[in-house]
Amino acid sequence: MTPPALADERRMTRTGPPRGAGPAAAPSARRRRFRLLGTITLFLLPALVLFALLVLAPIAVAVYTSAFKWNGLGGLPRNFVGLDNFTRMFGDEVFVGDLRRGALLIALSLVIQLPLALAIAMLLNQRMRGRAVYRLLFFAPYVLSEVITGVLFTMIFSPDAGLANQILGLAGIDGPQWLADPSLVMMTLFLVMTWKYFGFHMILYLAGRQGIPKELGEAAAIDGAGPWKRFRYVTLPLLGPTIRVSVFLSVIGAIQLFDLVWVLTAGGPIHSSETMAVTMFQFGFKRSQIGYASAVSVVMFVISLVFALGYQRFVLRRDTEGAITTMRAQR
């Protein structure tokens, strides 16, 4: 349906200029630019209105309420407390713990989850029997909803009857208390996160890998580069843009992690797997301290924003020049 219509439009624009050509070309060009501006505004307007209404306005409201002590009931907040919510937050060991746990999750993701995804992507890029099936299998967890994943793993990690400890029991090992041990729960959470998200990063890397021309690898092989050197000096640099985007998504995802934790542990035991988003939910919906919860959400937003802007400015900017330039720069 779309192609013929598009072709029509193109033909029209191509036949357009001759009609307007001639002595009156200059004013018509200005008018055309003006009309173009009008068109752009008209087409942007609905998106801008929605963006302002659904994104900008809630941010403004959250920043506003974060300066009040407010239980969320009875019209607008009145009890202005300035920055009290923020000073309280940074004195609260649970919130400071949230920051520490968030950093831990980010570090683990970058050091373990993404390299694992990369390794499997490289493996599944080889010629092998059943490659499509493996790709599908590894990607499948990503398609499941977070809630279903959470319920599934609460059953797998159940202390006695759970699958994990049953299997360990067969091997004669007394399995740990995966979700009930405060010192182990973050590792369990990371395990589930990895299971859930590595397939997504794997697909990104696979797509990126397939965009690399075969000739480059072949040329390197002729020059005498072994498999590792071909990976290190040809594939990896050319995968740079993909890796940088996947790091970005991974970090932002870890900062905002909520549903998986909520279903698996509800942040427990004794706050040892709580994330910023869980703390925000606890205060907003369980304790009805909307002001404080808004302050938590504001901090979460600022952290994400600063990271996103900084990353765009310093890391992703190189990618606008294209992958080939990056390689030349490295050489």
């Binding site: 609460t154 059953m155 990690f157 159940s158 202390p159 006695d160 009857a161 759970g162 208390q177 995966w178 979700l179 009930a180 041990d181 405060p182 729960v185 542990t265 427990g268 035991p269 004794i270």
Partner: peptide, 14 residues
């Protein structure tokens, strides 16, 4: 308390 009670729910299967 039962083994792993810190991670146990109320009406869940375990």
């Amino acid at each position: 308390f039962q083994k792993g009670f810190l991670g146990a729910g109320y009406s869940t299967p375990d």
